[in-house]
Design a protein around this nucleic acid. Sequence first.
DNA 1: GTGCAGATCCCCT
DNA 2: GGGGATCTGCACG
Length: 183
Amino acid sequence: MSIPRKFYKRDTEIVARELLGKRLVRKIGRGVMSGVIIETEAYKHRDDPASHAFKSMTRRNRVMFGEVGMAYVYFTYGMHYCFNVVARSAGVEAGAVLIRAVRPEKGINMMQKNRGMKNIDNLADGPAKLTQAMRIAESHYGADLTDSHGIYIADGPKPRKISASARIGIRQATDRLWNFKSV
DNA sequence: GTGCAGATCCCCT
DNA sequence: GGGGATCTGCACG
């Protein structure tokens, strides 16, 4: 069962923390892949120079301004996709949570095939690795993650402990500890 | 283990 | 025209 939309209608930072331990589920035909989310990052709006939504709405970032619980998928570095969930509290214009890593559970064989690797430790421990492992791409831009269809987020094991640190790979706003990992 | 180069292209101003 | 919410392989020692 997918998590209801109201879960995502809260402060982006809170949702980023609470997505830790949830399951990302991907169905392709009869196949199912899933993994437990173990690392996330919050990206906000005008108060966050590192966010794609920092400036005005554009073709790329427009879904960050739309309904919460939708997928924001973007293409970067000429070859990688990254996967986010739109989340923000009422009255805030834009926000999303980047899913940076999952611990594979189901469909590990499929992920290995999609990644062209056998090492389980490297399968989905990075934002572009998990999209490659689960075959997430531009066709998922704007997908409703509260729908239990091809891609969605479901409940999972609560993390014991959460650590917060600076977000990875950004130049701006490095003082904000909006990267969250379950420990 | 760390560090760097190269791949590769869409998006914006 | 420039830069990017990245990954991999190779070099090092």
